[in-house]
Design a protein around this nucleic acid. Structure first.
Lengths: 149, 149
DNA sequence: TATAATTGAATTGTACACAATTTAAATTGA
DNA sequence: TCAATTTAAATTGTGTACAATTCAATTATA
């Protein structure tokens, strides 16, 4: 049996499972905020910087308009953001936090704490892991896209 | 600004992005095999051990019947597997590799090689990383499920 | 042993992801 | 300046994921 084809030797599979299992753990923590996981990372990005076009938000979150447009419409319906077409450039839509959306940040403060209780124990050296993953993230999304795209 | 709410401090987000970006890199490698990423990991599991019920395959892949049933139907349609309801226990459906499915393993051998070319350079110490992720995987999927489910 | 509880797949409904295409607006350049 | 190109969102279509439910088969138990 080819060692390289063994499931337990696939880094991709380990990443994929860890990602899914972590996201699953967010569910009960995000339910009280009426947010899905994707809505949550979207709000995280906007709390750091709002009044940005969909494009910029997408670059920050590694998501395209096909995913963001319906998500943002839901967040708008929920009252956390507003989508405002720019008057400078009618092609772009800027995302603004509403007061409700800004206030939500306070309630969200306990989410990372809850996760640390739930998952934290499973993470040896979080800081180092985070750095390695960030290095990988940028390499994955640049290496074959240097000149093109 | 609450440090813990910064996007770049979220391990979950780093995992989520790495997972997605890695999976995206598989696409061109898997296209010639007529497999999606999920189909690929499914075949990886089956090449190690086939003639197993959907349940067992799901435990191996961390997927439930809601995901597997339609996926397996497609793989059957594609001619790589057959789904056979067990006669011992009529509730279970066993997954068998067809000859085509078995033969596919040879063509798949270059997939991990292709990925190493594409991503490998971005991975510092793959072996160690893999071990850490596996530790995390099992902890994530057991710690809150010890007694219950 | 009839009934209750459990189990394995399948189904239903919701929510992403993303490739590919479309549409409208802005920019370029002959 | 105006046709060609580029750009930003939105749309369309396909493929997961997973919670919750359903259904039939099996097992446990009163």
């Amino acid at each position: 049996m080819n060692e390289m084809l063994k499931l337990d030797n696939q880094l991709c599979f380990a990443f994929y499972v860890c990602s899914k299992e972590i996201i699953k753990k967010y569910r009960p923590l995000l339910e009280p905020l009426d947010l899905t996981y994707t809505g949550y990372i979207c709000m995280l990005a906007l709390w750091e910087k709002d009044n940005i076009p969909v494009k910029e938000l997408g670059e920050r979150l590694y998501l395209d308009s096909g995913t963001l447009t319906p998500l943002l419409k839901k967040l708008e319906l929920r009252g956390y953001i507003t989508r405002v077409r720019s008057s400078n450039d009618e092609r772009t839509v800027n995302i603004l936090l509403t007061q409700d959306g800004k206030n939500l940040q306070d309630s969200a403060a306990n989410v990372p704490l809850g996760m640390m209780k739930s998952v934290g124990c499973g993470i040896e050296n979080g800081r180092e892991l985070l750095e390695n993953l960030h290095k990988l993230m940028t390499e994955l999304s640049t290496e074959n896209n240097e000149k093109g795209e």
